[in-house]
Each structure stands twice: as structure tokens, then as C-alpha cells.
Write a protein that binds this DNA or RNA. Structure first.
Lengths: 240, 240
DNA sequence: ACCTGTCAACTGGCATGTCAGTTGACAGGT
DNA sequence: ACCTGTCAACTGACATGCCAGTTGACAGGT
């Protein structure tokens, strides 16, 4: 008789209540799992057993099957026929590709914003930047991460293209997970804020090339910080 | 040469045989439907009834449900609870956003390629360009469309980032469908080839700014041609 | 004519049963 | 010790049944 390995699953019972969201069961389950994977509640490699998840959510396997199919299409889980689906391992190659895409998209975004930005938008961005400073002073790492995300999301939304932030998120899923691993680093936020400020300043001065350059530099800072992850968390990476 | 009629719903029974591909039934069905939607075999607005599709494919509703869930996540079909899923209508807003993304991504691609391109890559691109000319001479519109696609795909693959073309396709699905509607236009291909040539020339000369400029110009040519579509095919567009 | 309440047929969401492919422990041969 | 064939339990893939929400035709009231 085989013994079920429980090590990685000990925190699975912290899944949010399904009643907290709307839509079909399958959609809600997808949302919960999506979030759990992105915030590393389900770290890379975690097996997703349909029967087990169904039992945990108090539903049948059907909606879980649907949710996992979508996660697989998004690339967040890997599923082979007849084999338990697993949360996709990180891979340095994927992170490089997503970084390239992020640079391409956010570069184009700030280039455009430098021409179209309004005073109201500048004000909101400025306020967010202040918030980032306050959160760093308070040592609220998680809060800073969210304000950082919001800064970038705001830039995307200010283009007036409202699917943009969704698309950008969709093609930087692995990167999002990897950045969770970088959260503990304390020194970085201060530099980040300076770089954000330079991007904003370029946009304010309507200096598109400067804004693009600042954004590329800012995003480029991520690359050298990603490299050590493969050594620090080898079990989260493919073939490791 | 045969042009596929796009408005004809009665030929839905021409769906390919499932045995022609690999993977689970759900994956194969997804692939068939995905292709059918992108090439307008299923035009925007087409209802996708699970029972009907299941019967047509000779399977049960379960794998069809999974396939449609994925299509919905991709944005190719719209599904509301208890309401028949429909192929997503086109919308000018979505096309604008996807054009922006395409410019951002392909611009970054050629900028990078201008620095890294090898002679072998230049040769393959040159050969593809010749092929485009031949196909235009033969009046093979569909063949030209595919060679055009391949030109852009090759550029993406030559970056060495092998998920890139997949990501790019993933965020330009609506655009892909709209471009099918532009196929009948006869004069355009010749201009397209000239523009492709300028992009390639920029890459060959390792002149990144020129290559980017040429690519942006090339992709920008699409915008004015998209606009009339909303008048020509109002029933394919949202609220129309 | 128009609006409105009702109802039957349709359709999708979910639960469940069955089956086949995969896995991994273990026994037996080398 | 190591390799290998075997087998039982595990797991996902798919079929099917049932129920609830939606829709659209139609009857009756205004």
C-alpha cells in the first residue's frame, strides 16, 4: 500500500472560502488556485490532485478539472495525460523571456504616456510613489510589493487601453512568482523608489526617450537578482 | 485556389477529424475549435453548444466542456453561466490594444535582432521574402498570408527566446481574426513585401533604430485598414 | 397593438460511475 | 547489490444523469 506524501500539502487547508467570490464553481476554484500559485502558497512542483482538491473545496471533481485545465493553458501547471498535474517549476529561460516581454511592453507604455499623460495621472503616480516611501520606512515589505505592482499597473491603465494590464500579467506569470522569492531582500526597495521616480520624471517632462530608458534600466535591475534564485531555491526550478 | 467562405454557418460540419492530432480528447477538441475560430470557420458570434459539439465529435460533453473553458480563458469565446457560449465578437478597442502590444513586442524583437542576427538567419529571412514575392505573383492570397505570418514568427524565434512567438500569438488573437477579413484585398501584399524588406535591411545593416522604425511603420499600416471592417462586417463586431 | 406573466424546452453546471494508464513497491532472477 | 517483471493502488479521462437557470413562444390582460 502506497503512502501519500503530505509534506508540501500541509498548508493547503488555508485556501480561501469559495463563497467569497462570484461566478461558477469552476471559475471560483480557478481564481483561488491561480492566486495560491502566484503567491507561492502552492510552490512550484506542488501536486494538484483533483479528488483531493474537490474534497477540500467540498465539490465534485468536475469543476476542479475545468479549473486545472485553464491553469494548464495559462502555463501555471503542467499536466500530462494520466499523470498528476503539478505547479510549473520555475525556469531561468522562462524568466528571461518574460523579462524581455515586460521590458517591451512597459517600455512602449511609458513612451506613450510621456505624450499623453494628464496632470491628474501625474498626481496619482506621485501619490503612489510617496506611499511606497512610507511603506519602506515602516518596513512593510509586502505592502511595498503591492504598491510597486500598483505603480506599474497604473502606468498601463493610464494608456487608456484597458486590457493591457491583464495581458501584461498574463505573459509575466513566472516572473511574478520569482519576484515573491525576492521579497525578503531589504536593501532593494530604496533603489526601486529612485528608479520609479526617474521613470515618473521622464513622463512628467514629456521626455519619452528618457522615460523609456529609465524604465528599461529599472526592469533591467531585476535580471542580476534573479540569477541567484536558481542556487537558493533549486527545488523550485526545473531539473532541480 | 479556393477561398473559404467566411459567412457560411452551414459548413460547420467540416470540422477536422479528431484522430489527426495527439493528446487528450479535450486538448484535441480545443485545438480544433481554436483553429476554427481563428480562421473564421466559426465567425464571431457563433454559438458553441456543448451537446451539439459533443455529438459532432462523437464524444461526451465532458471534454467539450474543458475545451470551451480554455477558449473562454483565452478570450476567444464568451461564456456566461447557464447561457450558451459564443465566439467572441470583434471590437475595435480590442484590436487597437492588440496592435499596440504587437508593435511593442515586434519592435523589441527587431531591435534585439539587429544586434544578434547571424548570416544564416538573414539567409532564411531573405528566402522567405522571395517566397512571399512568388506567392503574390501567383495570386495565392492564403499562401502569402501564411508566409507573412512565418516571416514574423521567424523574427521572434531568432531572438532565441522560444516561448516568444507563442506569447505574441496569445495576445493578438482578435487581431489574427480581423486580418483574415483583410485577405481579399489585392493591392496590399506588394506594399507589405517592400516593408518587410525594409525591416530586413535594417536588421542586416545592424541598424536597430532603422529596423524598429521600419517595423513600426509596417505594423502601423494595419490600423487604417482595420477601421472600415466595422462598417463592412457590422455583425462580426460587438453591439452590431 | 403592447406589455406581462407563465410555462415548456433547451442548455449548461455539477455530481458521480467506470475504465484505462501510470506509478512504485516488491519479489525473484542474475 | 542490481536489474527486471509483476501487480495493486492511485489518478485522471471520459461518459452520463440530474437539476437549476435561461430563453422564447404564447396566452391573457390592459
Amino acid at each position: 500500500m502506497r503512502v501519500k506524501p503530505v509534506a508540501e500539502l500541509s498548508r493547503v487547508d488555508e485556501l480561501p472560502d469559495l463563497r467569497s467570490s462570484t461566478g461558477s464553481l469552476a471559475q471560483r476554484i480557478h481564481h483561488v488556485l491561480h492566486t495560491a500559485i502566484l503567491d507561492l502558497t502552492f510552490p512550484p512542483g506542488t501536486p494538484l490532485r483533483k479528488a483531493e482538491l474537490a474534497h477540500r473545496f467540498g465539490v465534485s471533481r468536475a469543476p476542479v478539472t475545468e479549473a486545472i485545465a485553464i491553469l494548464a493553458a495559462e502555463g501555471l501547471v503542467e499536466a500530462m495525460p494520466q499523470v498528476t498535474a503539478r505547479v510549473t517549476p520555475l525556469s531561468m529561460a522562462a524568466l528571461r523571456e518574460e523579462t524581455f516581454l515586460r521590458c517591451a511592453i512597459e517600455g512602449a507604455v511609458v513612451e506613450r504616456l510621456a505624450k499623453t499623460r494628464t496632470d491628474a495621472q501625474l498626481a496619482r503616480l506621485g501619490r503612489n510613489l510617496r506611499l511606497q516611501e512610507l511603506l519602506v520606512e515602516d518596513g512593510d515589505t509586502r505592502g511595498f510589493f503591492e504598491a510597486d505592482e500598483e505603480f506599474h499597473t497604473m502606468l498601463q491603465e493610464f494608456t487608456g487601453l484597458d486590457r493591457l494590464s491583464g495581458f501584461a500579467a498574463q505573459v509575466t506569470l513566472q516572473l511574478h512568482r520569482a519576484r515573491q522569492l525576492l521579497l525578503p531582500e531589504a536593501r532593494r526597495p530604496t533603489e526601486t523608489i529612485v528608479e520609479h521616480g526617474e521613470v515618473l520624471e521622464g513622463i512628467r517632462r514629456q521626455d519619452a526617450p528618457a522615460a523609456v530608458k529609465a524604465m528599461r534600466f529599472h526592469l533591467g535591475q531585476l535580471v542580476p537578482r534573479l540569477k541567484p534564485l536558481e542556487q537558493t531555491y533549486p527545488h523550485y526550478f526545473r531539473e532541480g
